[in-house]
Amino acid sequence: MSAESLTTGQWWIVAVAASASLLAAVHFCFRNRRATVYSLIAPALGAVAVLGFRGAHDHSEVEALVIFSVSLLSLALLIVAMRPDMEKIRAKALIGETYEVPKWKVNVYGVLVVAFAVVVVFLLL
């Protein structure tokens, strides 16, 4: 599948679905209304960036929407992957202790998420 197989309107629908997946991931992992409301900032800034990117750099709107959608999906996957550690952090905070996520785990998840995003963007564009 290439990015041109969908229309611009369909890519906007994909972008809205990717935004909803990020909101769902944040709500599912943090179980906090404030975090969910704050997670609305990323899609809003992304939508503004898509429109600005399209106009300022002479790129197609579809390219910007593909990058935006894949970025949000990658971030949602990272949040879901880190959910067990989020629960440990919350449990330790309730009893007054701290929990530090192992650096190797953060690095592995980060590399996997970036690799996912790069591969999907290159496959689509």
Rank of each mutant, 00 (worst) to 15 (best):
A20M: 09
A20E: 02
S21C: 04
L22Y: 10
L23Q: 12
L23W: 11
A24P: 02
A24C: 12
V26G: 06
F28C: 11
F30V: 15
F30Q: 10
N32E: 11
R33I: 13
R34L: 13
R34Q: 11
A35S: 12
T36R: 03
S39D: 04
L40N: 04
P43R: 00
P43V: 00
L45P: 06
G46W: 02
A47C: 10
V48F: 13
A49Y: 09
A49F: 09
L51C: 14
F53M: 14
R54S: 14
G55S: 15
A56S: 14
A56V: 15
H59S: 15
E61I: 13
E63A: 11
E63G: 12
E63S: 15
L65N: 02
V66K: 07
F68L: 08
S69C: 11
V70I: 11
S71L: 06
S71N: 12
L72I: 00
L73A: 03
L73P: 01
L73N: 04
A76V: 07
I79D: 03
V80D: 03
A81W: 07
M82N: 06
R83A: 13
R83S: 02
P84H: 06
M86T: 10
M86E: 06
R90T: 06
A91S: 03
A91M: 01
A91T: 00
A91C: 00
K92E: 05
K92M: 00
E97H: 04
Y99E: 00
E100W: 03
E100C: 06
E100I: 07
P102Y: 01
N107M: 10
V108S: 02
G110F: 03
V111A: 08
L112H: 07
L112T: 08
V113C: 15
V113A: 12
V114H: 11
V114D: 11
A115I: 09
F116H: 13
V120S: 06
L123G: 04
L124Q: 05
